[in-house]
């Protein structure tokens, strides 16, 4: 039996009717129409689907949309300010953190969650945080450096 829910995605409320078993990922991609979040493994292994739910990093492929009823959901589309990229997005571009781009939305969301909780992470903490986000192109080096650069910039700005 379909269930009526309201998802607040990147600050916009969406009243939706969803199957109880529908994933948050399929609901946001299919019903809300935001396709930035990717489906990789559909198994909580690769992290390409990662979103923030009330600030927590969530593998949206394995999270039921009904459980996010009333929650604030942030996807990669919500990180920028209109056409102005977030510092993490700029850093990924300038430091070689993006190649094919498929892991990038989940990486950016994962890194956002890390910096929200740990503003000045060590390289080890960065690598731990993105270990649930698989990248087959970059070798991770550019990604780790991009996240570290943003943390350092923020620290310098106080």
């Amino acid at each position: 039996m379909a269930v009526d829910i309201t998802l607040s995605v990147n600050g916009v409320p969406y009243p939706l009717t969803v199957d109880p078993h529908a994933s948050l990922l399929h609901t946001v991609r299919g019903d809300v129409g935001l396709t930035g979040s990717k489906e990789g493994c559909d198994d909580s292994e690769c992290g390409a689907c990662m979103m923030l739910v009330d600030g927590r990093p969530v593998n949206a492929c394995s999270y039921l949309a009904v459980q996010a009823d009333g929650s604030d959901v942030t996807t990669v589309e919500g990180l920028s300010d209109g056409e102005t990229l977030a510092p993490l997005q700029e850093a990924f571009l300038t430091r070689g953190g993006v190649q094919c781009g498929f892991c990038t939305p989940g990486m950016l969301v994962s890194a956002t969650a890390l910096l929200d909780r740990t503003p000045n992470p060590s390289e080890d903490e960065i690598r731990t945080a993105v270990s649930g986000n698989l990248c087959r192109c970059t070798g991770y080096d550019g990604i780790v450096k991009a996240i570290a650069a943003v943390a350092a910039e923020r620290a310098a700005q106080g």
């Binding site: 909580s44 992290g47 990662m50 927590r56 990093p57 969530v58 593998n59 999270y63 994962s110 969650a113 890390l114 731990t128 945080a129 270990s131 649930g132 986000n133």
Partner: peptide, 9 residues
């Protein structure tokens, strides 16, 4: 346990 997303949920 898992990744930081697993531990957050």
């Amino acid at each position: 346990v898992g990744s930081h997303a697993t531990r957050a949920n």
